[in-house]
Amino acid sequence: MNILFQFLYTYRALVLFVVLELVCVWLIVQNNRYQSAAFFNSANTVAASVTQTSNEVSNYLYLKEANESLSEENARLQQELRQLQQQLSLPSMRAAVPAEVEQQYTFQAAQVINNSIHNSKNYITINKGMVDGIRPGMGVIGPNGVVGRIRSASDHFAVAISLLHTNMLVSAVVGDTDAFGSVKWNGRDPQIANLDYIARHQKVAEGDTIFTSTYNSIFPAGIPIGVVTEVSLSDNATYYDIKLDLATDFSSLSYVYVIRNRLKQERDSLESISIN
């Protein structure tokens, strides 16, 4: 026993090194899970308030871009509202829809206080948290399209996994067709993502818009993800190689909406019952 202690003492630096590295590896593995506690990341109150303060300063530099993107969105929404009002004025459109289905999705606006785009796993910190009804797993969209999903939330802040994260997959559909696939970022250019698993019998062309599909319970169907810029199909491949230009400009993201799906729990529990 004495010899063992002597040995450990002689190599104490090496032993501590191995122990500390194991702790770090454990932390990294824990941190890679889809949802996690909000203490050891930038949703942590101290970290978030430091970030928010520094963000308030740099925000002034981007006010113009933020304003333009918000007013464009406003105009688009106005137009959609008018169209829907016209449709609703027809009696045949007023079918009896239960309120919770009609208002299945509610949107909570939030300001981006921290955002990275150059890592291979990028995260977005926003200034709304549990108090505002934000929970891990909710979807996040921007004025132009899909942004990410909430990973952890503290009382007043939350961290979302950006679409620019190599483990993030979003179920997608091509334009008006029924070609379903999933969008995944390739880890390099913050403007370009891949669309995988579109089978070769489907018709996909450059310029097609990619939307979120109905196959997920986080995003409403029909939220834009991006536009196809490159389609290729090698002779013996089962699936297309498709590249898309993302709808959201992550480098100038300033406001986002967090989506709450009232029927998510119902849908998920039904699906899990059916699977088991």
Partner: peptide, 28 residues
């Protein structure tokens, strides 16, 4: 000594990790 250096490295790494949302990577 190496022990003090490593503990300082761990502490600094973890603090940076919190802001980078990359828990454990800078520390390692």
């Amino acid at each position: 000594g190496a022990i003090r250096l490593m503990l300082m490295g761990l502490l600094m790494g973890l603090c940076v990790d919190i802001f980078y949302n990359s828990l454990g990577i800078h520390a390692a």
